[in-house]
Nucleic acid binder design. Structure first.
Lengths: 119, 119
DNA sequence: CTGCATCCAACGGGATACTG
DNA sequence: CAGTATCCCGTTGGATGCAG
């Protein structure tokens, strides 16, 4: 069998861009237009300021998020998905569909597996 | 804005199933038929026995992988994707496409971002 | 051949406090 | 408002050795 890592490489790259605990949340929250820092903080339940900042920086670095600073007082910063990220967001819909079709099966499989182990 | 976590939930679930460092590799390696433990170990470059085992168990628990033991000497174990996992594997193709279309842009964005930071 | 057990290092991520 | 700085801990994953 061929080296599978090389074959799967582009796939793992995508995953890495969104694999953080909060990346998907930001992606979804910013999908329908520009969002401000505090809006994100409220929309993404449980995220800390620190993690929000880190996630935003990472997504910005990857070219998925566009950061616009308005030099006002108090400061105002808006985050927008890039075209690339919009496309990704739509692509991810098929994954959501898969998840919704099979989440029941998965839960059942896990339950069954755990029951068998405990014996 | 609504609670985004809830909305993105099924999506993060899928990611979790595949987010391990090696899960995708196993998924791809097993996509074209049953594979044995040692085959996987060789196909997935750099994986340790420990991590291979852990990854296999996790995928099996999630109902993505089917484990068949042949009670021979020496032992022989085959891993096969379940129908659900096959479906997932095909769904992931669209992600691969996205990655291949944009990996250049992403690399450029990162380079640009890093250059701007270093000033 | 196919694992499991143990030890250990690195990293992600939470809590908290401070700032332009 | 939109961050940055520190500290700290749990989890992930690598290395190695043993076993059915």
């Amino acid at each position: 069998m061929r080296d599978v890592i090389e074959e799967a490489c582009p796939l793992t790259e995508v995953i890495d861009h969104v694999a953080g605990k909060w990346s998907i949340g930001v992606l979804v929250a910013a999908a329908h237009g520009p969002v401000r820092f505090t809006e994100l903080e409220r929309a993404i339940n449980g995220i800390s300021r620190r993690m929000l900042t880190l996630t935003l920086r990472k997504l910005e670095r990857d070219g998925l998020l566009c950061r616009t600073v308005y030099p006002t007082v108090p400061p105002k910063v808006e985050y927008t998905l890039t075209a690339m990220a919009q496309e990704l967001h739509e692509t991810l819909r098929s994954l959501t569909d898969w998840a919704e079709r099979h989440r029941g099966n998965i839960a059942a499989a896990q339950k069954h597996y755990d029951a068998a182990e405990r014996q």
